[in-house]
Design a protein around this nucleic acid. Structure first.
Length: 343
DNA sequence: AAGACGGGGTA
DNA sequence: TACCCAGTCTT
């Protein structure tokens, strides 16, 4: 065991957070937590984890549930392919593994939605396989500790950081070591205002000595956003409203929404002939996603507007809206006009 | 190799 | 604003 690994695990023993998925090393629950925490902070994912464990205590419960029910539990968390893949993988585990979670990195990574990070996390935490995890926390911690400015979003960077993580790994305690690496990145070696004064490695840190903390890790790509203009129609009759399901390869796949007309610009809706149904403007929202800025308008309308739209529409009783997963944008609107209560 | 994919938080 | 988050999949 290296001095680094000893110091790291001593720090972890004292400072680790009590998180619900750390109570037991049930691979089903560890898997669930890892999928939920992809690109998601612990504070945001924790309540979803508890909801999932409560709704689907075992992989059999998850596999036998409908996709609608799984997506509804995921509502508001984003990156919904995670939920769809989670559901598909649960079926694989039940059908191909008799419900017994695969126990090697090479089998685990075959599951839908499981990549190198998640496979290493599960294999090390649950099955003591010596695989080093490399997530955003580990990239940051290593790049600063070693003073490495290779882009973390490049192919060579991924290889380089992964190799260093392998060298640092305590192979006898891979699961604890990996969690300690990530916890360091999350609690001490934070993106901004890292706690270098309290860091057990501050005398070893290359970036700290060279005043490069603020410049590391280095990333070369920056995401570009495009604008979209969405016009939703709230069509209400009696105690029902009209919905449609999103099926396209696009954001929010397999979620539900109000009847939608998308236009190329903010003004195009004016050429959209709505006179007969006399829609009443209600509310505008600007909704920010990683790659898109959504300018959304919501209108009250009646059923005649549907003849001017293309889509498969159906009525749903207001009492049953809880069974459908909606994009957060739609949840915000329905909540603001009192059609639904927020959970 | 580069984009797409959500939503919330920080400075 | 810009960047980040216990990343993965598609093109």
């Amino acid at each position: 065991m290296t001095d680094f690994a000893i110091k790291l695990q001593q720090w972890f023993t004292v400072n680790k957070r009590e998180l619900p998925w750390r109570m037991v090393n049930d691979p089903y629950k560890v898997w669930l937590s890892e999928i939920i925490l992809q690109q998601t902070q612990v504070v945001q994912g924790e309540s979803y984890y508890l909801k999932f464990v409560d709704s689907f205590p075992t992989v059999f419960d998850l596999a036998s549930a409908s996709e609608d029910r799984v997506l509804r539990r995921w509502q508001g968390l984003g990156y919904y392919s995670r939920a769809r893949n989670l559901h598909a993988a649960a079926k694989t585990i039940v059908d191909d593994y008799n419900g017994v979670f695969p126990n090697t990195f090479n089998d685990i990574i075959k599951l839908k939605g499981v990549g190198p990070y998640t496979a290493a996390a599960i294999a090390s935490i649950c099955f003591d396989e010596p695989c080093a995890v490399v997530d955003g926390n580990v990239f940051r911690f290593i790049s600063r500790l070693k003073g490495i400015s290779t882009a973390i979003d490049s192919t060579v960077g991924k290889k380089e950081f992964s190799q260093i993580a392998d060298e640092l790994l305590d192979k006898e305690n891979a699961g604890e070591h990996n969690q300690a690496m990530m916890e360091m990145g999350a609690l001490v070696c934070r993106p901004s205002n890292p706690l270098c004064h309290d860091c057990p490695f501050n005398t070893d840190c290359v970036a700290l000595a060279s005043k490069q903390i603020g410049n590391l890790p280095y990333k070369e790509k920056r995401t570009k956003q495009r604008a979209r203009y969405l016009h939703f129609f709230l069509i209400r009759n009696e105690n029902k409203i009209v919905l449609e399901k999103r099926n396209a390869k696009d954001i929010w796949k397999n979620l539900y929404q109000l009847p939608l007309k998308e236009t190329r610009s903010a003004k195009k809706i004016k050429s959209f002939d709505l006179r007969e149904s006399q829609p009443l403007f209600v509310k505008k929202y600007k909704h920010i996603l990683s790659h898109q800025i959504l300018y959304a308008s919501f209108y009250f309308a009646d059923k005649s507007v549907l003849s001017q739209l293309e889509g498969e529409y159906f009525d749903v009783d207001l009492e049953l809206l809880d069974d459908y997963a909606f994009p957060q944008l739609v949840v915000n609107f329905l909540s603001d006009v009192g059609v639904v209560k927020t959970d």
